[in-house]
Design a protein around this nucleic acid. Structure first.
Lengths: 129, 129
DNA sequence: CAGGATCCAATAAGATACTG
DNA sequence: CAGTATCTTATTGGATCCTG
């Protein structure tokens, strides 16, 4: 059977895998990070351009999301000292490498969406009896 | 450049990918889901066994996590009408297929953890000046 | 234009006690 | 054993106003 991490005993070193995965999910598991990474995968973009593209993200949350990504070294923030200021965000090498497993997950999501939606409907129908 | 979804314009049909990915992340992006899926990837397991294995999860959160997974059709819940009751949880086919992209993400996490940790340390050091 | 600061609502999560 | 119910706290997200 496929496993997230190959292990047999309950207490061997495989926990580290889940921990690392957990850390990553703490970053990308929020509401906006993957959307932002997604639009930045098309190339560098300015703050307000990202905000217009993502649709629904608030000023504040975009700031926080970009700060988090910058802190993790997934995004660079370049300030052009013009007036008015121009700030450009771009994915780093590490950030771009994240797109590979992320797009695999996106494909899974798209392929299994019908199944999941159906399962939810069936579950909910069985509940209200 | 690698992209989450192949697109060029800002408003084409590629949004559906991000939406689907977003929905999946709403499920697996919480604190416990991937841990539970991870331990169930080793085979069916009973409630208290999962709770002992995952370490740190509360009674309540494990219940909610399993309910959510069951609702999405990723986990089956089998009740053996014995006394005391025995309830076994197992991944469905769909649930097992999720492990493939999830383990890819886990590998990415493990490979890039040093880089990310270093980037965080550097960012934090630059901040406190 | 980009983003900091503040306040408020919604949600997630933890602790604890009770039940078939 | 495997839950449910209730209460409380922590975290997340959104709205708004202010600034270089």
């Amino acid at each position: 059977m496929a496993q997230i991490t190959p292990q047999n005993g309950p207490a061997d070193g495989a926990e580290t895998d889940c921990r690392a995965l957990g850390r990553v999910l703490e970053r990308i598991g929020n509401k906006w990070t993957v959307m932002v990474v997604g639009v930045l995968s098309q190339g560098p973009m300015r703050f307000n351009a990202i905000m217009r593209t993502v649709d629904g993200v608030s000023h504040r949350m975009l700031t926080l999301t970009l700060r988090g990504l910058e802190r993790d070294g997934l995004v660079t923030r370049t300030v052009y000292p013009t007036v008015p200021p121009k700030v450009e965000y771009a994915l780093t090498e590490t950030g771009q490498s994240l797109i590979v497993p992320l797009s695999a997950l996106a494909r899974w999501a798209e392929q299994n969406r019908p199944r999941i939606t159906a399962a939810q409907a069936q579950y909910d129908a069985a509940q209200e009896r």
